[in-house]
Write a protein that binds this DNA or RNA. Structure first.
Lengths: 130, 130
DNA sequence: TACATAGTGTTATATTATAACAATTTAAAT
DNA sequence: ATTTAAATTGTTATAATATAACACTATGTA
């Protein structure tokens, strides 16, 4: 178990915004929303995002270039992420399934290779959109 | 079984390039490589890429913004993709594991929802890079 | 033929992300 | 407390990725 990270000012501002958002946020949308708090330029946003991702506080949804907060308190989630994405309303939900994460964490390819990290994105229609 | 797609001129040029490449290619790298063949502007490349992805002839590696040819003859691969990515040399391999695809195709989340499509990216070190 | 659909060529621009460098803050170590 | 190293910040500029919009051409089919 590693030390709890304390967020820096910019990290905290940006994390709070993402954490409050019901949907994944894109970097420039974050930028526009935090300009009133003094964060004026893209590198400030991207640096904070990078650190937050490293810490596992947020995750990047690769297929959408957007970021959501992690609500999974597990330490491993930064290295083992799974999401469901609705192709209509774009709602994104982090999947936490012990079965799934166990299966993937133990998955070995043909050469017997195991992996240290994975990201899985499922696509379909959410309940509302069916 | 749907009709075999015949590739159009631009699609064929771009598919051939990707298919011959040992590594994933990025859109602008493709563009530079096909300019001598008369494909001069980004939209021509992106349009061909979009169609090729739709057809399942190539896949996009989301975490890398790059494209590789599908060598999996299965019809389902466009909707069910898994890759291993070496974090040192960036080698990318498409994983074809019946067990894995069966597991994921049948995966249901907490709400009992099934998904029509998924993309999985594993990260680690390949044999050479360990 | 004529009509619809898909593909092409082109210019411009939107969106996403990083390089580079100076200044400041923080943490830790004498 | 003072110094030092490391991390963070602020800033400008620019790179890299991707799409909008519109005119035109090719292809398939009624």
């Amino acid at each position: 178990m590693h030390k709890e990270h304390t967020l820096t000012k910019n990290q905290q501002i940006i994390f709070d915004l993402i954490d409050k958002s019901p949907e994944p946020l894109k970097a420039y949308s974050i930028l526009f929303n935090v300009q009133k708090k003094g964060i004026k330029a893209p590198p400030q946003v991207y640096r904070a995002l990078d650190k937050l991702v490293e810490m596992g506080k947020i995750h990047k949804i690769e297929s959408r270039n957007a970021f959501i907060a992690c609500h999974n308190s597990s330490c491993q989630v930064a290295k083992a992420t799974a999401f469901s994405i609705c192709e209509i309303c774009e709602k994104v939900t982090e999947i936490s399934s012990a079965g799934l994460s166990k299966y993937l964490a133990n998955f070995k390819d043909k050469d017997g290779m195991k992996y240290s990290k994975y990201n899985l994105e499922f696509f379909g229609l959410c309940k509302k959109c069916r």
